[in-house]
Design a binder for these strands. Structure first.
Lengths: 225, 225
DNA sequence: ATATTGTAGATTGGATCCGATTATGCAAAC
DNA sequence: GTTTGCATAATCGGATCCAATCTACAATAT
């Protein structure tokens, strides 16, 4: 038997296929709201944008559809998915159930580095003036608190909910000029984590999501179309 | 405007593409455990099975991967995904969080028809002797209780968890000869629904999932490789 | 004018083909 | 006997081509 190797050959993270690149790019464009709801995504157009044939484009579309970001109809193509207020409300209801549970599990495992990282995202969110970056920083902050839970499946579910509503969150962050009061809620959650109070962090997270949900839907009803 | 047609031309529910058919068939084969964990799925082989080219096969694979049922590696192909005990435990933890919530929301909305349907699935599960059908009837029973919640997103999440662990549930249902005691738990849950006691139904569901999880992992550790 | 029909272009689904990468088998060297 | 090095086959990712379907608009009939 071969002797165990000392060197851990670095994991040259498998190069991405064209379909991977296209999926990532289109996912980004959709969740950032750079494409209108209901807008069709033409295979030819996208293929030309990436200088590839339509094959990898279609494979990326299959995945976008499985993720719920687009809906496709045979021989008609795919369009960017849109969510009703009821659907948005349901997704936030789901988040209000899952995210407090995850943070509660994460608090006892949180490293000082994670807490420091979270504090940095929290500060950066508070200081940021560019509307485009609010969405990212908000998501980064929350994810940095969840990561140490080491619950990959829960995290993937949270990611999916974020993908689905992110375009609306961004819109309302813009309309409310950054939801300044959210900063205080973020800091309160983070302080509960630092104090190693899992239940408190969970409760604050649940309230944070509930108020975000209400703010979001009410603003959408007012301003959105 | 054209006169309204009397005949309601039946909604010939958009014909499925080849990729759809292949996805459904492969998903079924995987979750039923008809294919070994880690077994490679060759594009050519599958294409020949369905008498199509490899294109729709690859599109189906993209979706199976997004669903978590297979893992793919560039230039190497896809293999049936396998879950560690930790991963299985986490998924059941997730279910123990989500499913009680859903049934609690569903109870006030449950129609008598749904309760009757659930009772039929429950009875059928109790009476069934063919191991192959236990998995289906178990899933049908639970879904029939959740459906009236009218929470499509929650339901899709539950479906995903079922897909991921179904092969293991089936295996243990077989090993335990149908988990006969599960029938009593099912009946208790159903009775709580009939009595319109949402909290009780939720608690019973949570316990049902917890015991199922423990039974499952312990049996897997004993018998499974 | 309105509704119907027909036809051409646009778009998608799928088949076939080709280059790139990986896996396999076998001979040579240690 | 084990390991190394190659040649070959198996397999995959992607490009190109063709068929099926949809869409838009003009022509026709009522």
């Amino acid at each position: 038997m071969a002797t165990a190797l000392k060197v851990k050959a670095f994991d040259l993270g498998k190069q991405a296929s064209s379909a991977d690149v296209i999926y990532d790019a289109m996912r980004d464009a959709i969740i950032r709201g750079e494409i209108e709801e209901g807008e069709p995504l033409r295979q030819d157009t996208i293929a030309q944008m990436f200088n590839v044939s339509r094959i990898p484009v279609r494979e990326a579309m299959q995945r976008l559809e499985a993720q719920g970001l687009v809906v496709s109809e045979r021989y008609k193509g795919v369009v960017v998915a849109s969510l009703s207020y009821d659907q948005i409300t349901e997704i936030f209801q789901f988040r209000a159930l899952v995210e407090p549970t995850v943070i509660e599990m994460a608090v006892p495992l949180m490293s000082d580095e994670s807490l420091e990282t979270a504090q940095q995202f929290c500060d950066a969110f508070a200081a940021e003036t560019d509307p485009i970056r609010w969405g990212d920083l908000n998501r980064d902050f929350h994810n940095s608190l969840y990561r140490d839970s080491d619950k990959a499946f829960f995290l993937s579910m949270i990611d999916k909910t974020n993908d689905l509503v992110e375009r609306y969150v961004r819109l309302v962050l813009y309309l409310t000029q950054g939801m300044r009061y959210a900063v205080q809620e973020h800091q309160a959650i983070l302080d509960a984590c630092k104090a190693r109070k899992p239940k408190l962090a969970a409760d604050l997270t649940r309230n944070h999501i509930d108020t975000a949900s209400k703010t979001l839907v009410s603003y959408l009803r007012e301003h959105h179309k």
